[in-house]
Design a protein around this nucleic acid. Structure first.
Lengths: 219, 219
DNA sequence: ATAATTTTTTAGACCAGTCTAAACTTTATA
DNA sequence: TATAAAGTTTAGACTGGTCTAAAAAATTAT
């Protein structure tokens, strides 16, 4: 049984380590969680005592098998709740993150099972992120950032990266980008990395390099 | 902004004071919350500093207008979530209390508004308890305990009292009592207060005095 | 290879919420 | 009405989570 704080640290470490594929430094965790490095040191000692991460002084932390499992459970809950908020309660995709951050900590396996069933076992959340199944397995096809697509190709939007700010999502809605949209790459500007695209064959827009890095599409 | 603990104390005080109609002693709160009297003393000082209750040393606490409002918001959330769990996710009425105890603390007015709308503005939860509206107003008709009904009368079940244990609810389901059931009072035993009833005109059962005090019916 | 800089950890403090034990107030009893 | 019993509050300690300031280790630069 993890405390709310422990769950948040574990989730942050999971994400920062790219799903457990690399180790994470104290300062990175502190930045991500808006806490001080000293607090992180305290907490990683606790999590490592619980065998959810391995911690080597001065060299950062690595997530364990059990830690990964626990993190995925939290992420599963987060994404199911986001899906519920958008699909069932008609939230916009830029309104759900904060509420899901709270809901993900509700402790009730039965609730999550029933919610999953009610939503018809969705495989992705409103931002296109995969929802781990009950056993923690994630099945995603290949996703590449829009900035890596060659000119003249046409692709489908699979997901968008959401950091802290919901303003990126509002911007995407405004220009007409959504999960499933068809994007034709018209032109790529060398000097600033911006891209001209045609959305669903009817609307031409420029997107910055920054934005194109956070729109994930079919290869 | 109240902490989770403050919210729980406030709710307990609201209930123990019968909606703010009487004052509550330290020990009663301690019993209800399974804490020690000393802890209650500490907390009531905090809540009274926040003007949610008035506290007179050695004489207990009374809830203020603001305290009542805040308590009703929490109760509203609790009962809306219970309704959601039963109506939408097909929980049984004896499975919802604990989960709703967690969900009631989620902070998002928008969520509650949308949930209320999705559920079609229900006026009672699965146990028949009234759901305060957005402004905190409760509209309930008169409800009397089954034990107060005279023999030979027929009444409708409006609500059931749920304390800690869900076993009473399981018992009611088993004998066939539910919200809306029609009960004909066949006979009342003087010596132990038990009552013989006919449920929906087809099933005869005896209920103990204890049980009949916790089944609320039309007068 | 040593010094300067950055990162990380430790030590010690603080706040919220809880507890036990002792002191105090109120109420009940003789 | 004096005293015993019951209930309540205070004092002091503990835990979880956080912080600042200082010490220690690692990295970078000279």
């Amino acid at each position: 049984m993890l405390s709310l704080t422990e769950e948040n640290y574990l989730k942050a470490i999971y994400h920062l380590s790219d799903g457990g594929t690399k180790s994470v430094l104290t300062n990175e965790v502190a930045d991500a969680m808006s806490t001080k490095p000293a607090s992180v040191t305290d907490m990683v000692k606790k999590l490592s005592a619980k065998k959810l991460i391995t911690y080597e002084k001065y060299y950062g932390v690595t997530i364990t098998k059990q830690g990964k499992t626990d993190a995925l459970t939290i992420i599963r809950k987060h994404r199911l709740w986001e899906t519920f908020l958008v699909q069932t309660l008609n939230f916009h995709w830029d309104q759900v993150h904060e509420v899901a951050e709270q809901l993900e900590h509700i402790q009730s396996p039965l609730l999550i099972e029933k919610l999953d069933e009610f939503l018809n076992f969705p495989i992705a959340d409103p931002h296109g992120h995969p929802i781990p199944d009950k056993s923690g397995k994630i099945h995603t096809g290949q996703q590449v950032p829009l900035c890596d697509i060659a000119a003249k190709k046409t692709v489908t939007v699979l997901a968008v990266n959401v950091k802290e700010s919901s303003s990126f999502l509002q911007y995407l809605s405004k220009i007409g980008v959504y999960i499933g949209a068809r994007l034709a790459i018209l032109d790529k500007a060398e000097f600033d990395g911006s891209i001209e695209i045609m959305i669903d064959g009817k609307k031409k827009v420029f997107v910055s390099k920054e934005a194109s890095q956070n729109i994930l599409v079919t290869p």
